[in-house]
Design a protein around this nucleic acid. Sequence first.
RNA 1: GCCCGGGUGGCGGAGUUGGUAGACGCGGCCGACUUAAAAUCGGCUUCUCCGAUACGGAGAGCGUGAGUUCGAGUCUCACCCCGGGCACCA
Length: 823
Amino acid sequence: MERYDPHEIEARWQAVWAAERIFEVPNPRPGEDTSRLMYVLEMLPYPSGELHMGHVKNYTMGDVVTLYRRRNGYRVMHPMGYDAFGLPAENAAIRSGKHPAVSTRENIDAIRVQMKRMGWSIDWTRELSTSEPDYYRWTQWIFLRLFDAGLAYRKNAAVKWCPNDLTVLANEQVIDGHCERCGALVESKNLEQWFFKITDYAQRLLDDLAGVRWPERVVTMQRNWIGRSEGAQVVFRAQHDPAIELPVFTTRPDTLFGATFFVIAPEHPLALELARGTEHEAEVADYVRRTGALSAVERAGEKQKTGVFTGRHVVNPVNDEGIPVWVADYVLMEYGTGAIMAVPAHDERDFEFARTYDLPVRRVVVPRDGEAGDDAAYTAHSEHEVLVNSGAFDGLAADEGKRAVIEWLRSEGRGEGRVAFRLRDWLLSRQRYWGCPIPIVHCDGCGVVPVPDDQLPVVLPEVEDYAPRGRSPLAAAEDWVNVACPRCGGPGRRETDTMDTFVDSSWYFLRYADPHNANAPFDRAIVDMWLPVDQYIGGIEHAILHLMYARFFTKALYDLGYVGFTEPFADLFTQGMIHYKGAKMSKSKGNIIRPDEFIERYGADTTRLYTLFLGPPDQDAEWQDGGVAGQHRFLARLWRLVNETVDRHGSGIERSAPADGAGGDLVRKAHRTIEKVTGDIGQRFSFNTAQSAVHELVSEIHEAEAASGQQLRFACAIAVSLIHPYAPHIACELWQRLGGERLWDEPWPQADASLLVADTVTYAVQVNGKLRGQVDVAVGAEKEAVLAAARAVPNVAAHIDGAAVVKEIVVPGRLVNLVVREG
RNA sequence: GCCCGGGUGGCGGAGUUGGUAGACGCGGCCGACUUAAAAUCGGCUUCUCCGAUACGGAGAGCGUGAGUUCGAGUCUCACCCCGGGCACCA
């Protein structure tokens, strides 16, 4: 018998699949049945290098689902593309010294070869790359539709700036005050930038999380990121000039009577103005300057809160009391109104500040029964707390008080109920070269002018020097920048910033459905047929960024009538990372496992098997060098068994076999394995245990020497059929050797329910909960018969001897527990 | 600080509605085949103890401590450790 030679088999079958075009899934034609369409999608890779093991795990998972669903009668779209614009690709290009367009294309070519070698069932006719003009033309088109709708706009704002990558960043790309990509400490800058008005969608982004089947932790992370708070906006006015309004947002309107001072952020536009003319003017100016130079991390890291008095007071609208206005950097300009009423008795931060500057503390909420101490803020506010020192509101429970105060403020025109979100608008412009050009022309006369649709795409110009300099490298391409204003024909200048890469990836899943459309990004009827994506699979690192942006785009496109659904991804599976030598694989740590080396050594099938055998797919897993050999041994054993079976007993695909004679147990095991694997792949996404089940079946085939040829051929066919989604090459080969053809078209095997149980079942017998023996009983035996058999087990008899059995528990098919009391 | 995951043999892990903890794989030990090695095949492999005749039996054991239950890895409470998210968000 020839040895298992994965390379020969894999190359041959990949050629067959390509020739038969079995991965190509065309869109249904009018009138065709669309009830069994399914869209399986994995997050597309950045072509900043070759694929790593994380990709292999991700795409193999998607492939298992795809192959499994296809054999269950679904028409599955399984596309692939490249998130080719952006910092990763550009930085890789800078490192290699090649132009990003060149290095990106080279990387894509290399990745495509790797993907084909893995045998993933990707429909290559739908392949796309976000850096190609026929794709980004439509990214620009969508940008313009959002611009028309007022959802893309320019504003001058304090923005996050990465001093290393020399570009602005979105809030979502700042982790702990550091750049998400390079780790540099992020600075704050005042710049005019482009934003998407994602905040308009905050409530819907929150509400619609209820309708998706996503991992709970991802939903929670998005909820936290959106950060909805209910409260009130309350208008305070300057005591020296009631025309100056200073609104605050508070979640605790019930504590308004406890406000003993007022704080505004150093960046607040009124900070300097308020202090003007007071003896504190110079001090305030100095403080604003000093804190402005600090990063958010430095501010938050300060041991003690700092601030200065402005010399001014504001009037508390509930009691007309004047309270001092301070400037302090513990108040953030970006949230709420940039100003707060300080209630030290009931807010930890205000309390700390009041202690530092010796400001008064006035308690207005007390526990209904019991005392609140004086050495900390008392922050509870439920039905168990009551208001005091609060005028007409005294005696109300805190939660009622909140409503009552809001109602009073509203009726007096001094405030109103308000909801605040943590979510900020998405800053989309970048001062980098390798990105999608923003299709806008600036004209002295007309202002910001969109490039007309018929002039798209605005092609990214070739420039020699694309290194980041803090302003877009595109600005240097004078010929490109200087252009006639599309509106008035006068001199105009193109927008030179490019788009954040996340814009490109916020709609790619739509383009796959209609990838060659030259007249529109996609046809609505076609995307509505395929989407939302039935199963999306990708890394947890995109829990907020990509997944939030894609949801926003989908909702905006829905509102504009371009798609008929509001959520892009119905089901999401987030995979864990693969670690190696105790750390996540990274080039800098030098603990990379290159997939190519494994394919070279063991073949694609073994590599596919092992990445899914590591552990539960949603959890991080440790790569073990030796583990791969086990999967290879398994395939070699399967190979040998099938070939031996055919040699000894002849070929022929058996779709059933009698569960009697010497091989009866084997046949039953095959049915149980179908049941187990089907549930594990189809329902549980438990890819590791599905494999274990096939291992067990193969071991039993190996041991079932006395089984009939039909029984052996049946068991082999089931093993081969079940392992096909994991190891399609060897499975197709062995299926053919067994006498079949086109395993990929073979319906998924069905377990015969009557064969899932054996004639007898082994009961565990416990005495007082301790295992004392086992006994085989006929399936379906009466409770009394089971008990009698259990009592007859010698070791059990010894343990109940001389004691009174006070309780008998029989769990059908599982165990007996005899409860005895010592006699 | 708040919110999620997770903690089970030497290792990765299984244990799906509370019902025989350790499936499957790695590693290790012993044996077969071989001049030898590799490959392959067979056996053993949670710990401690007892008795060793097939191998049997006793006790302990799933981060710690309580609890509910005939019975807890699984449920409840309190706590410890690891990983992740959010965090001066008013």
